[in-house]
Every structure is written in structure tokens, then in C-alpha cells.
Design a protein around this nucleic acid. Structure first.
Length: 277
DNA sequence: CACGAGACCTGTTCGC
DNA sequence: TGCGAACAGGTCTCGT
């Protein structure tokens, strides 16, 4: 579930609360449990557990697919990877099977990091930049407008699908929203980035922003057992619609594998010309 | 530089 | 019904 719209949705719910889960701003950490050591990427587990107590959650931000919990002294960065989720629940509730780390607050609540596949990671650091490194720009960054995105896209000779998913190129897109944006822009996933015209690249940027904003407005995409309450899955154009009719032209959606990722597109709307492959 | 394969993990669905 | 293969929202590292 976690691409930019889902992480943004979680950031908002952690700030404001949702349904029976209160927000966590202003809460003070009393202790931390680590149930799967590798979830804590930095520092070592004992330092992690020693440094968290006493720190208060002051701000919650998102950068790409990273969540940033700004604490009194440090920042806790969380990456949900494939199956991570964050749940606010009462301390007296039994620990669910896939909880990997929990932060216990003074007032009877805890924040639980639930992650079936164990790919998720968190970092407790003084300087978030040490983790975020050379992450690419946010898709809504104004510097991409005009020729900004065009200059970036055309500086690489790479297939669009893997390029857009490369977090060093642009921060936030994953498999779902990349397929959706390419379909909306009528660009074949294998199009070589340096072949795009200024008009095409600006259309692509607009489409990326549109699918991300729609995803945020719909509170993300909920598929299978990872559920966040979003319903953007009802509006997907091609993702996981192999064989079903394209919503634009009716041709059956096709699936191919690009960079080891399932890739969905309409062979009629998204034509790969010899010049751009 | 760009791409593909393999790792890291568990759970669900598909095909025979 | 049963069982292995394929597949899943991500990212890193290595070899070519």
C-alpha cells in the first residue's frame, strides 16, 4: 500500500487521528518494544530503546515515501516498504502477530509498526538528511515546472517505467501510480526518457500530479489484506486490470514485466513507436 | 550508464 | 482437496 498518497494519508491520520485512533502529536514516549530487530536500521536496538523515552512527538512530515516523526531531540524516520502499516491502539490491547516495533506513550496509547513481510525500516537519527540522502524532488515541487522536469527526464536514456520508480529521480511514485500516470499520459512504459518532447514531459508531470492528488483525495489505494480505508482502487485505470477493457478505448489491458515489476498498460492508447524505444 | 538477477520476507491466489 | 508456483504496494547490491 505505501506509495506517496498512502504515506501522506497515514501522516495526516497520525496528526489528526481517524475513527477510533487518536492522533499522536504531543504524546511523550515512555518506552519502545522491538519485536523484530532488523526493523530498526539505526541505531542499534539498545540505543534505540534508551534514547526514545522522554521524547515528545512535535511534528509529523512526509518526504517521498518516508514518514518523519520529529521528536524533541531527534527524528524517527519510517519507511513502510511493501507491507508496513502504523496503528494507534490502547496499550492494554494484545500485540497483533505482525507488530515489529511499538512506541509506548505515557498516556495509555501506543504506536505500532505492523509489517508482515518485514521489509519496513526505521531510523532514529539527529539529522534526517543522513537517511534521505539524495532523494529526488517531490512531484509537486514547483522547480519541476517549465523546463525543470523536461531537463531531468531528458538527461537520462532510460525506460520511463523504471526511471519514474527510481526514488533518486523522483520521490514518491511506486508501481501503482507509475502505471496509472503513464496511461493517463498515453505513454508506453518502455518509452526512452530522452526521447520525450517538452510538451510530452510536461504532460507526464501533470498526469503524475493528477494521479497522486486523486490518490490522496481518495485516501490511498487499498488492495488485499493491507487496508487503510482508502478507495482509490475503485478508480484504477490499468493497474491489476490485465485483460479488462481500457476505460478509454476498450482494448484489453496488457501486462508485461519491466524491471521485475508487473506493468499494466493499454496497447492501443500507449503505443511504443520505433523512434522512442 | 543502464539493465537484469538475486536478496530480504510472509501471505494469498492461481493452476494442475 | 492438496501442493508448488507465481505474485504482491519497495529497495539494495552485484554482475554484465
Amino acid at each position: 500500500m505505501p506509495e506517496l498518497p498512502e504515506v501522506e494519508t497515514i501522516a495526516r491520520f497520525l496528526r489528526q487521528g481517524i475513527a477510533d485512533q487518536p492522533g499522536i502529536l504531543g504524546r511523550k514516549v515512555a518506552g519502545a518494544q522491538v519485536l523484530w530487530a532488523r526493523t530498526v536500521a539505526e541505531p542499534d536496538v539498545s540505543s534505540f530503546q534508551e534514547r526514545l523515552p522522554g521524547q515528545t512527538i512535535q511534528h509529523i512530515d512526509r518526504r517521498g515515501k518516508f514518514l518523519l516523526l520529529r521528536l524533541s531531540q531527534e527524528t524517527l524516520l519510517i519507511h513502510l516498504r511493501m507491507s508496513g502499516d502504523l496503528i494507534v491502539e490502547p496499550l492494554n490491547q494484545a500485540l497483533a502477530p505482525h507488530h515489529r516495533v511499538t512506541l509506548e506513550f505515557e498516556d495509555g496509547w501506543r504506536l505500532a509498526f505492523n509489517d508482515a513481510r518485514k521489509f519496513g525500516r526505521m531510523w532514529l537519527v539527529a539529522d534526517p538528511q543522513s537517511v534521505l540522502g539524495n532523494l529526488g524532488p517531490e512531484p509537486f515541487d514547483r522547480s519541476l515546472e517549465g523546463v525543470g522536469f523536461y531537463n531531468r527526464v531528458s538527461s537520462f536514456r532510460r525506460q520511463l517505467k523504471p526511471l519514474l520508480m527510481d526514488q533518486h529521480f523522483l520521490a514518491g511514485l511506486g508501481n501503482i501510480y507509475t502505471d496509472e500516470a503513464l496511461h493517463l499520459a498515453r505513454l508506453h512504459p518502455l518509452t526512452i526518457s530522452s526521447s520525450l518532447t517538452l510538451q510530452q514531459s510536461n504532460l507526464l508531470l501533470d498526469c503524475i500530479r493528477q494521479v497522486l492528488q486523486d490518490g490522496i483525495d481518495r485516501h490511498g489505494t487499498s488492495i488485499d489484506w493491507v487496508y487503510r480505508g482508502g478507495d482509490y482502487q475503485r478508480y484504477l485505470r490499468v493497474y491489476q486490470r490485465t485483460g479488462e477493457p481500457c476505460l478509454v478505448c476498450g482494448a484489453p489491458v496488457e501486462r508485461l514485466v519491466v524491471g521485475q515489476r508487473g506493468t499494466h498498460y493499454c496497447p492501443s492508447c500507449q503505443v511504443l513507436s520505433a523512434l522512442t524505444s
